[in-house]
Simulated assay, not measured.
Amino acid sequence: MRKDKTIIEDIETFDDYKMESVWERTKLDMESTEGWLYLGADANNLTFAKVGLTMGDLSSRSYSSGNPNYYLFCAFKCRHDLSISELKSVESDILALLEDRYRYSDGTTKRKRFHESKSISECFYDVDFIDFFQTLHYEIYENHRRCFVLSCMDDGFGGTDGEFIDCLFSSTINDHHFYRKMIIQY
């Protein structure tokens, strides 16, 4: 999965320094191809989810040498000016929130550990993937939206239906609009 470089044309700010500042930040956020919190999936296991972070291009996270069925379902766009330590803190917080929510009936977590090292992974098993996707977006939106780029959904009549964290979906997913409607916040 790759985000093509977007060039946003300048707008007239009428020498308003506040408007100029907001516009420059928005432009840099929208043109950036780096800084993503992503949700990985398994084409053959609809109960698997992986949450990860990359400061670089998404294409390096689009595959797994150990699992040919792995792909990036979507990636949420981070603000262009966040430091790696800020993003790691956001990722850690979101993974902890998800770990608390996704548990077996006996209370053990659905977040897995690495076999040999026993360190905690970014992978969850036995989850409802669509619920996981919606919960991930909700946690980002409610607790960390200041670190991400927001987008609005056009209602077709010159207004908006709501907003969501700007996200890029895998090219293997045909109806991106369908999934965006699942995460829209009113």
Results as ranks from 00 to 15, higher is better:
Lys3Gly: 05
Lys3Tyr: 07
Ile7Phe: 07
Ile8Lys: 05
Ile8Val: 14
Ile8Tyr: 07
Asp15Met: 09
Asp16Cys: 11
Lys18Ile: 04
Met19Ser: 03
Glu20Lys: 15
Ser21Asp: 01
Arg25Ile: 03
Arg25Lys: 12
Lys27Ala: 05
Leu28Met: 10
Met30Gln: 13
Met30Tyr: 13
Ser32Trp: 14
Gly35Gln: 00
Gly35Lys: 00
Tyr38Val: 03
Tyr38Asp: 04
Ala43Phe: 00
Gly52Phe: 01
Met55Lys: 14
Met55Glu: 08
Met55Phe: 09
Ser59Cys: 10
Arg61Trp: 00
Ser62Phe: 11
Tyr63Ala: 05
Gly66Trp: 07
Pro68Ala: 03
Tyr71Asn: 05
Tyr71Cys: 01
Phe73Gln: 02
Phe76Tyr: 12
Ser85Lys: 15
Ser92Tyr: 14
Ala96Ser: 08
Ala96Lys: 12
Asp100Lys: 15
Asp100His: 10
Arg103Glu: 00
Tyr104Asn: 14
Ser105Thr: 04
Asp106Ile: 11
Thr108Met: 04
Lys112Phe: 00
Lys112Ile: 08
Arg113Ser: 05
Arg113Asp: 01
Phe114Ala: 09
Phe114Gln: 09
Lys118Asp: 03
Ser121Trp: 00
Tyr125Trp: 05
Asp126Val: 02
Asp126Phe: 07
Val127Tyr: 01
Phe133Ala: 06
Phe133Asn: 06
His137Met: 13
Ile140Met: 08
Tyr141Ile: 02
Asn143Val: 03
Arg145His: 02
Phe148Asn: 15
Met153Ala: 06
Asp154His: 14
Gly158His: 03
Gly159Ser: 06
Thr160Ser: 10
Ile165Gly: 09
Cys167Gly: 10
Leu168Asp: 02
Phe169Pro: 06
Thr172Cys: 02
Asp175Glu: 13
His177Asp: 01
Lys181Ser: 08
Lys181Glu: 04
Met182Gln: 15
Tyr186Gly: 13
Tyr186Pro: 15
Tyr186Asp: 11
